[in-house]
Structures are given as C-alpha cells and as structure tokens.
Nucleic acid binder design. Structure first.
Lengths: 252, 252
DNA sequence: CAGTGGTCTAGACCACATG
DNA sequence: ATGTGGTCTAGACCACTGC
C-alpha cells in the first residue's frame, strides 16, 4: 500500500524514553549489545532483514543505522557476507584540535602581536613556499597568553601579494579563534597540517618563559589558495605542560 | 506507480565516467562546486527539492549525499532554514594514528621486549589504575626498532589478575601491530588515549639513543575492561625526529 | 502560511559470497 | 540458488523557520 497513507506512529514500541529517532535507537541498542558482549568481537550481526523485523522498521532505516555504526568503526560490513563486529586498535584513535579552541578559549585568552616585518625568503623558506630565494615575505610573531601565562608562540611567513590584501586583516588578528580561522586556505583542499614534538630554540623559549631546549608540541601549517599555490607557512609552538590532546576511539 | 517496477536505469544522465553511485556523484559534484567557488563560503545550497530535480533522483538520495557532506564538515544543515557552506578552521584538523602502523609498519620493524617483571603500585600508579598502593603489577618495557634505529620506547603496567590470563599473551607481543591491538580494552569504551610532548628521562633516553632531556611525543594509554575497570596503563615515547602526524581536514 | 530540513516506508533491482 | 549487503524510488508526515 502506498497511496492511502504511508503513515506510521513513530514510537511503535514500548520504550520511547527520549523521543529518539528510530535509527538512533537502533544505533544505540546495537552499540550496547556490542559493549555488553551480546555481540562479541568478530561476531556476525543479524542480517538487515532480521533487524528490520526485530525493530519493526523498514530496510532503509536499519541500513542507515548500520552505515553510522560502520562509519564509527564499530562494525564492518562485507558485501554478500554480512556485518561483523570490529574490535578497536590503538591506531583507530583520532585526535582533534577542537580542544585547543573549545574549552580553552575563554575570556582570559589573549593574543599579542609580538612583531610584524618583512623579510626575504632564504633557501629553506623559498622551498617550503615555492617562491624564489629573496622573495619578500611578511613575517609575523604572536603570543597567546592565558591568565598571564604564555602558552602558545606562533610564527608565520605570508607571501606578500599586492593582488591579495590579506595582510591587513591578518595583522588585526588578536583572538585565537580568528587566528585559527585565518589560517585556512579557504579554497577547498586548504593546506597541510602536521603535528610533532621539538625542542624550543632561544627565541620561542624566552617568549614562552621556558628554558632553551624544553620540549614543545609543534603544529605546522601550510596554507594554499584554491589553485594549490602556497600562501603562508607557520608553526604554533605549544607549551608541553599546558597542552594534551585527548583521543576518542572510532569516530564516536 | 509502485507495483509494476520501481526500476530506474542507474545511469540516466549523460556522464557515467566511472559508474559512480548517484549519491557519491552528488557528493562529488557539490564538493567541486564549493571548491571552485560556485557555492562560496556561507552560501546557501539549493534546497533538497531543487537538487532532486537537478540530479533527477529521489529525496532520500539527495539527503544521503547531504548527510555525508555535513558529516565531512563541508556543509551545515539548519532545520527550517537551509543547508549552508561551511568554511574550515584549523581546529577542524583531525590527526590519525594509522600513520604509525600503515606506512611505517614493514618488515624492518622489530619489537624487542626489554624487561618483564612485577612491581608494587606506588601512590601515583595506584591512583591511575584505581588500585591500592602495594598492589602487584606487571611491568613491561619494550623497544621498537626500525632499520637498527630505536624509534619507540614503551612502558606499561598491567594489573595482575589471576582471573584474566592476559599476561602471557601480552608478553609474547613482538610485532608492532600486535602491540597496538593488545592495548585495546576490547569492551566498548575501551579507554583513554592522550598525546603530548615531554622531555626524555634517563632510562628512555638511553634506550632511544637520545640525550637526556630530548623532546619526544608521548602517547599515553589507559585501558579499561567492559565494566570500566582499569586494566593497564602505559606510554609510548616516540622519537621526535622520526614521527610526525599529518592531519586531514574535516573527516574526508 | 509556505519553504526547508529530518525522519520514515515498503518495496525494488543489483552485485557479491557461499554452498 | 540463496542470502547478504548496496543502491534507489516516490512518495509520506513532522518540526522548525521566516514572512
């Protein structure tokens, strides 16, 4: 029947504790079963058809739930064979930078512009930014201070381009959020970002009130415009005692 | 019409260059338009109904594509208003540990067990593992060597539990992959993992062939069983000059 | 109120895996 | 041949937004 009314009372079952959409209810229920061992690691889930019957929903709804679970890495679907419970690796860990803005970003966070000048690209910078040695670059140094404690040192080289008067707005960045936003290539692929550890050199060390050689997290970023041409390169140095990235498993 | 044949030649349109499913075709097309500026940052996408017409598919298919795009962080849907192009932050970066196993894990990688012993929990360990001071713990030290170069130092404390003869299998771990797999709580929430920078202390430094005080990436892990009870705590120390996490934006 | 996204149905056909 | 996941349809009702 299709014409009269493809209607269905959304909460057909008994427990509708929270007005949860059906597909999320299925996600949660299956997650719980995996967590509690009803479906152990490597086990095969009931087929989609069976789940349709059990949850009294249509195939698309079950499907949607399974896609979400697969997406979170909790299960893996194999065409023609079934859907299986996956077990986690440490290597499934996913680290996010939200933490650097989220909780951390409140009223007591302040961005200070330490210096702004122009420099000529040396060999190393030229290679990184794909410009000839001697090319004029804007050189910016910033310090993020929280509760009077220096926490992040940022240095950045921006290609000076008369066509693109980005520099002015870049200079004005005095909020951390703005700083992070500005460092996107607002084309699509955007750029590359890497994270590593390193030892602080004199300049950064003194800015961060740390001894020379102290460890730090280094967040390096290369922005490109929509054509893939480098626009800027820089690095954030994060005091090792103040920053710690927490992971969540899968994508939960 | 529903009875006769809810059939549709999958490639109704002209270009079927790759036999791409319709929903992926839509994802790609919209992504391209955003990348090339047809839909600029903050712009409103055509409504779902309009997209249905344009791509000649049913609402569910358009919906699916939009959910994927929203999921990747490329667009944001707002109920009752529309779907809008989002622009990336640096804080959208996502770091994965696959890199530590993927490329890096080949034949020349070897895991050496440096020592295995039992120790009594001191105050600090007791607190971390939620056990009383003096509790017996298994203490493991490992070194991952690649091409004769020490790269990762791993120390781990496992709660000694006669009920759970994990220890034996833990001892045998001599492959990196196995090591990473073993450090999962194979219950569901699994555990917590954090990433930070620190300075190497004497023991780790000598094992890694680095000077004391050299920076390192530290990957700390706390495993819990399915009931949430801690099972082990440990940390991987990664030589700063050998490891670098690359990010991808959104979830792409 | 009309427009928009959010959820859902009851099927269909296809591709793949297994016995 | 059977069972499984993968894709898709042509609608439906709901909740929310904005005029």
């Amino acid at each position: 029947m299709v014409k009269p009314s493809a209607k269905a009372p959304p909460a057909g079952s008994k427990e509708s504790h929270e007005r949860l959409p059906a597909y999320l209810h299925i996600v949660r229920t299956i997650s719980d079963r995996i967590a509690s061992g009803v479906y152990g690691p490597g086990a095969k889930l009931p087929s989609e058809a069976q789940l349709c019957v059990e949850f009294a929903v249509s195939p698309m709804t079950v499907r949607r739930a399974l896609v979400i679970l697969a997406d979170k890495g909790v299960v893996a679907a194999e065409q023609g064979r079934g859907t299986f419970v996956r077990s986690f690796d440490l290597s499934d860990s996913v680290f996010t930078l939200e933490q650097l803005t989220g909780e951390w970003l409140d009223g007591s966070t302040e961005v200070r512009l330490l210096s702004a000048s122009t420099v000529k690209a040396d060999e190393q910078l030229g290679a990184m930014l794909s410009v000839p040695v001697g090319r004029r670059l804007v050189y910016l140094r910033r310090l993020v201070v929280k509760d009077e404690t220096p926490a992040v040192y940022h240095k950045e080289y921006v290609i000076f381009d008369l066509q693109r008067p980005l520099v002015e707005s870049q200079l004005k960045l005095t909020s951390l959020h703005g700083l992070l936003q500005a460092n996107r290539g607002h084309g699509f692929p955007g750029g590359e970002i890497t994270l590593c550890a390193l030892a602080l050199e004199e300049e950064a060390a003194s800015a961060l009130d740390q001894p020379v050689g102290a460890p730090a997290l280094c967040l390096e970023h290369l922005s490109r415009d929509s054509a893939g041409v480098p626009m800027s390169w820089g690095r954030f140095l994060l005091r090792y005692d103040l920053f710690r990235l927490r992971a969540r498993l899968g994508r939960g």
